[in-house]
Simulated assay, not measured.
Amino acid sequence: MMGSAAPKFVIAGAPASSVFQSYETSEPEANSVTDKIVFTGRLSDEEIAGLYAGATALLFPSLYEGFGIPPLEAMLLGCPVLASDIPPTREVCGDAALFFDPLRPEDMARAINEILHNPEHRAKMIERGHLRAQEFSWDRSAGRLLDIVEQL
Rank of each mutant, 00 (worst) to 15 (best):
S4N: 12
A5M: 08
A5W: 01
A6R: 15
P7I: 08
F9E: 05
A14H: 14
P15A: 07
P15H: 10
A16M: 06
A16C: 03
S17L: 06
S17N: 08
S18G: 15
S18C: 00
F20H: 13
F20Y: 15
Q21W: 01
Q21V: 11
Y23A: 10
P28A: 13
P28V: 12
E29V: 08
S32W: 13
D35C: 06
F39I: 04
T40G: 06
T40E: 06
G41R: 09
G41D: 08
G41E: 08
R42E: 05
D45H: 11
E47Y: 01
I48P: 11
I48V: 15
G50Y: 12
Y52M: 10
G54N: 14
G54I: 01
A57Q: 01
A57E: 01
F60R: 07
F60W: 02
P61H: 09
S62L: 07
L63H: 14
G66Q: 10
G66P: 11
G66V: 11
F67D: 09
G68W: 00
P71I: 04
P71N: 09
L72T: 11
L72Y: 09
E73W: 02
A74S: 15
A74K: 00
L76S: 15
L77Q: 12
A83M: 05
S84Y: 03
P87W: 07
V92H: 02
G94C: 08
D95P: 02
L98Y: 13
L103T: 15
L103N: 14
P105H: 12
M108G: 03
A109D: 01
A111R: 03
E114H: 07
H117A: 01
P119S: 09
P119E: 05
E120L: 07
H121Y: 09
H121Q: 09
R122L: 06
R122D: 03
I126H: 04
I126V: 15
E127H: 02
R128Y: 07
H130P: 01
L131P: 00
R132L: 04
A133V: 07
A133M: 05
F136P: 13
